[in-house]
Write a protein that binds this DNA or RNA. Structure first.
Length: 253
DNA sequence: TCCCAGGCATCTG
DNA sequence: CAGATGCATGGG
């Protein structure tokens, strides 16, 4: 069981921050969270956030919830004199950048393009169907009818092509090289462009300097920075600043 | 009915 | 290189 100061681990904010499109389900006490073949319960107890898993797998979940990172320190290192960022950091305090499963993240954000969040989540649920955990490429190729009926629109071919290419090489996705190499390998996949690649790098591979620029972030630049790119975009923790800014802007759209 | 959604691939100049 | 366009689908 993990016990975290809830000030820096707010379950609702994490669930609604747009980084996680699969695996979080609301319950009476809080959430159940699945990742790969693992599951935990997450809820509050006093001023603490509790992560409780059966069987015991605290190391996995400690990494998933990114407990090795000091978010108070990230806040302190934010560029000064930026009122919008300061407000976003206050509003989003409690968000953490999860270490999500790479495959789940890749599929989630391929599905996310030119799509809305409820539809994305619905499609991912349909891909999982009655399976216990999110299907790997082998399972998806076995269950092609799911891909056809998941409401994926034109994105279905991106997923089929990726699964078939992995099957041909008989290997799962992994990006062991540096950031630049991973970015090139990701954007070489049909259906993955700069924005989706940055989401995968940030949410699946935990490159905190990556800053996905989507329609909301463009709105932020336009509405709060006179159309210019703010300083925080090019800092080592840009991914976190992007996430709280996204959450802040989208909440008060 | 039109417009949009955590964009991308493709084509054109 | 930058800019324009089509894309599947469901919700507002």
């Amino acid at each position: 069981m993990l016990k975290i100061d809830s000030k820096y681990c707010n379950l609702e904010k994490i669930a609604d921050s747009g980084q996680v499109l699969y695996g979080w389900n609301k319950t009476e006490e809080g959430y159940t969270v699945t990742s790969r073949d693992k599951i935990c319960r997450a809820y509050y107890q006093g001023d603490s956030t509790i992560i409780d898993c059966q069987p015991l797998d605290d190391d996995y979940w400690a990494h998933y919830f990114d407990l090795e990172t000091d978010y108070e320190e990230i806040e302190k290192s934010a560029p000064v004199g930026d009122d919008f960022l300061k407000d976003a950091l206050d509003f989003g305090r409690g968000i953490r950048i999860l270490n999500q499963d790479l495959w789940e993240t890749v599929i989630s954000f391929i599905v996310s393009q030119n799509n809305n969040i409820p539809r994305i989540q619905n499609s991912l649920k349909k891909l999982k169907a009655e399976d216990k955990f999110f299907p790997d490429y082998i399972r998806l190729l076995e269950k092609r009818e799911r891909i056809a009926t998941a409401g994926l629109g034109y994105r279905d071919n991106y997923i089929i092509k990726l699964c078939e290419e992995l099957a041909e090489k008989s290997r799962t996705l992994n990006f062991s090289g540096d950031l630049e190499t991973a970015y090139k390998e990701l954007t070489a996949i049909t259906g993955i462009g700069p924005k989706v690649a940055n989401c995968i790098l940030l949410f699946g591979l935990h490159h905190m300097e990556c800053c996905p620029v989507d329609t909301w972030v463009k709105k932020i630049f336009a509405n709060h920075y006179e159309g210019k790119v703010p300083e925080w975009v090019k800092t080592p923790n840009a991914g976190y600043y992007q996430q709280v800014a996204f959450y802040y802007e989208r909440t008060f759209k």
